[in-house]
Amino acid sequence: MNNRTFIDRMAKKLGSDADELQQQVDVFVQALLSQVNAGNSVTIKNFGVFEQKMKAERKIYNPTTKSFNVIPAKQTVGFKMGAALKEKVQ
């Protein structure tokens, strides 16, 4: 399911315009991500938990330049599914 069908499906459910809904979803996603990026964990009932995750810095070898480069540590968003979601998707 791509973003288009996702928004269309939501619009059908809520009975609202797809373009408007897209904007609302963008704001909703930003609100979710800003909380997670601030280091908080966001629990969504019957779905799962969004959490901040740190990726440690690592060395990679570039075969063409034959040099070792360091990829710096970075922050990302992790997700763990909840027990209710696990049951639903089986």
Binding site: M1, N3, R9, K13, L14, Q22, V25, D26, F28, F47
Partner: peptide
């Protein structure tokens, strides 16, 4: 609240149907 509920419900629906749900700006 309706938007939030629909958001995650549709994700579950999409997972059941295709096994993949792509959302712009999230992942």
């Amino acid at each position: 609240e309706g938007l939030g509920r629909a958001f995650f419900d549709v994700i579950i629906e999409g997972l059941k149907e295709d096994g993949v749900v792509k959302i712009n700006g999230l992942g």
